[in-house]
Amino acid sequence: MSTLGVTGASLVKDLRMEWRSKDAINSMLFFSLLVVVIFSFAFNPTAEESRRIAGGLIWVAFLFAAVVALNQTWARELRNQVLDAYRVSPAPPNALFLAKTVGNFLFVVVLEILMAPLFVVFYELRSVGPVWQLLVVALLGTWALVVNGTFFAGLSIRTRNREIMLPLLLFPITIPALLAMVDATTSVLTGEASPDFWIKLLAVYDIVFTALCLLLFESVLNAE
């Protein structure tokens, strides 16, 4: 069974299901919209201030929104116990994991693309540093959120209180990645510092945790 083939098929299946229901993307969008509005009320920032806090605001909004999507993707596999059908098949477990991760990655990237104009409008954001660096940070950071998020969501569905379990597991492990994303974004937006260290750290984080996820997912999936 080729891992890539099954990954592709699972991914297409997930995207098709999301396209039909739009559950994940709608709830993520609405959720991050709420965060933006609430933050704006809570801090009432000026343009200068908002440039400073935007890094934190953006990523906290995306982190919370991602949790919504991450719970969704596995909930889909639990309905009708479809996951059992995958587990009795000879298909490699990591293919399922990769498909879910790439799917969630795409969902969150779409969310980011849709939300970016809103941040600009609401917070009068303008980047002082080069914008392409923001793209690199966004891609690496999103992967960092999503790879561990998908793994821990897959782990949480095997526990009681699964919706609560995901943030409890994900947030502590994500702290360094979040710190890197926030600081890198702020560095670029204010143009006051170089985000190089943070980008490297994110890359290391992505590599380390992607490897760990692929190493351990089979055990987690087959834990009864």
Binding site: R158, T159, M165, S219, A223
Partner: peptide
């Protein structure tokens, strides 16, 4: 929270 026989594997992975 991970009840039953799965606790050990999940905890070890985490």
């Amino acid at each position: 929270f991970a009840a039953g026989g799965q606790t050990q594997v999940l905890a070890a992975a985490f």
